[in-house]
Nucleic acid binder design. Structure first.
Lengths: 317, 317
DNA sequence: ATGGACTCATAACCAACGCTGATGTCGTGA
DNA sequence: TCACGACATCAGCGTTGGTTATGAGTCCAT
């Protein structure tokens, strides 16, 4: 493979323009540069390939026999380059209009929908593909480039990612209206909570691990009363009187308001979690990912909103 | 067609090397540049196309999905560029080993043969194609690019050409040994020559026009005694006793030495002509044309040797 | 845990290239 | 013979892409 002695794409195109117009000056105009620039470029091409390409005269310029031959080969190169250019344009377009998002369950279920509605309103031709998965899987998907933007919950930002806090979630203890805790006059004791059998999600769910983390000083926790595979199932079980559960505030807000379940305050226990948008370290979101990020910032949030290091550092706004 | 957003050939090759080696640093070594240069080039490509191409990690770099796609298209472009490169190399090779020469008859007959022998000795694989034609035709052939080097005779350099004097020819008056002029005690008078019927070449031959130019103050010249189509025919006619002729010194030197004809001095008449190698203005001969030119300089010449403006100016030696 | 080896990114500097705008040279055609 | 058109040259300048030196983060082995 010897790419030495091969002029660059721009010069090849220029040569073909010279062939087509029969004039260096004309070619210069079409190419948007000055006539001396074309003259110099053609000369440097001739120096590069080692033989004259253009036959100049006072009445214009024509390609030499060798120049014409070279131009034929150059047309092939430029054609391939056009295909490449079209491919690049298409990828860029995709990136602008197609948005792949991975989100942890809580975010996917309770926050993303309204953001996506706003995104659809402001950017109607954006095609969104949303995948719900747990936070660790989200991090992997983002790092792999499988998605353009991820949303995770939890106190820590997964390694290799930059992030921005887009909300704060509060775990709340909910009980059936008939449950004794529904009538407590003082906040619940954390130890009591730890030693009570609860309706739970599966072991590795974000909600459950967050609870276990918050109660780690009271370990071991009581075994689950029930173990269900979705948040709604847990909500339903509590409402049906199965027993207490710890769920995201976002998930039970409606149930609490409707009186189907009762929220029980707990003292001395931080059950809040950051919800973060994440993207590969150093690669600021662009296109519709950026649009979505903007929407998460401008949508009214419950709880405090902070900014991660990625936003505090030297990166441009 | 939009070549904007299309990286240059060198960068495309670099990207493919990154894909192959899985490391920016490795690719840098293969490419013969430094690692930071690769890092910067990849970044600028990403800025150009508008999306990330390479996924960097502490354990190396791999192409993103988009990068891999782009690399596939790039391979097509580079393949076409390789074809182009091979074509250029082939044309350059031709130019180095194939030498097309056009020469005026005098040069072709009396000087070029020994130069070509020397050229063949020093560059055995050079294929020479020699065309004999008159000086005006030589100039056209050189300007058209039909030949790599031309040789003309006459006092003036044809327009649009650079030249170098490679010899000097002297026209001499020759007569049969039995002719009265063979025994003159004083140089011949130009007027006498002008008014004597001579054995001549055809009207537009270089030798005849040179003679007519030199004798223009004595016009009109006497009509030809005989009009023959080749120098050798004229030589033969003179030797056979037909009458006087004016021929190139180079052509009759052997005949004079052998006593077949007698050279007659002429007073007050400059019958010398420059013999010049010519090439398109500004395009110094390269390859075997250059080799031949060198040989014409280093071969012992009869008469004085000068250099034209092309050699006196700022052009490199 | 700690140091070394490896990755890539950044900084500071420098040379070369390519463009511009003005001017020069040459051939052509009225 | 003159004026126009096409190309070449020149000087100046900004951008680009290169270099070396250095920093920061990750992985691995001791």
């Amino acid at each position: 493979m010897s790419l030495t002695h091969v002029p660059d794409l721009d010069s090849l195109e220029l040569l073909i323009r010279v062939a087509a117009t029969g004039s260096l000056g004309q070619a210069a105009v079409e190419h948007g540069i000055s006539q001396p620039a074309v003259s110099a470029r053609v000369q440097s091409m001739e120096r590069l390939v080692g033989f004259p390409l253009v036959s100049r005269s006072a009445r214009g310029s024509t390609l030499t026999a060798e120049g014409a031959l070279l131009a034929d080969w150059a047309r092939e190169v430029l054609h391939a380059a056009d295909v490449l250019g079209a491919g690049i344009a298409s990828l860029r377009h995709d990136r602008l209009t197609r948005l792949r998002v991975a989100a942890s369950l809580t975010v996917a279920e309770y926050l993303l929908p309204r953001w996506l509605v706003r995104l659809a309103a402001s950017h109607p031709d954006t095609a969104v593909r949303l995948s719900a998965m747990n936070s660790a899987e989200v991090a992997v998907a983002v790092l792999n480039g499988d998605v353009d933007l991820g949303f995770v919950e939890g106190p820590r930002v997964p390694a290799g990612l930059d992030s921005q806090v887009v909300g704060r979630d509060q775990l709340v203890v909910v009980v059936p209206p008939a449950h004794p805790w529904a009538r407590l006059r003082r906040p619940l004791d954390p130890a009591t909570l730890a030693h009570t059998r609860l309706v739970q999600r599966e072991p590795l769910s974000g909600t459950r691990t967050a609870l276990e983390l918050a109660l780690r000083s009271h370990a071991p926790l009581a075994a689950p009363l029930l173990e269900l595979s979705s948040t709604s199932a847990v909500r339903g079980a509590v409402a049906a009187g199965a027993g207490p559960a710890v769920l995201s505030d976002l998930a039970v807000r409606d149930d609490v308001a409707a009186g189907r379940v009762v929220a029980v305050p707990v003292r001395d226990l931080d059950l809040s979690r950051s919800l973060r948008a994440v993207w590969p370290r150093g690669q600021r979101p662009t296109g519709s990912a950026r649009d979505l990020l903007t929407i998460t910032r401008t949508t009214e949030l419950r709880g405090s909103v902070g900014r991660s290091r990625a936003q505090d550092g030297k990166m441009a706004p």
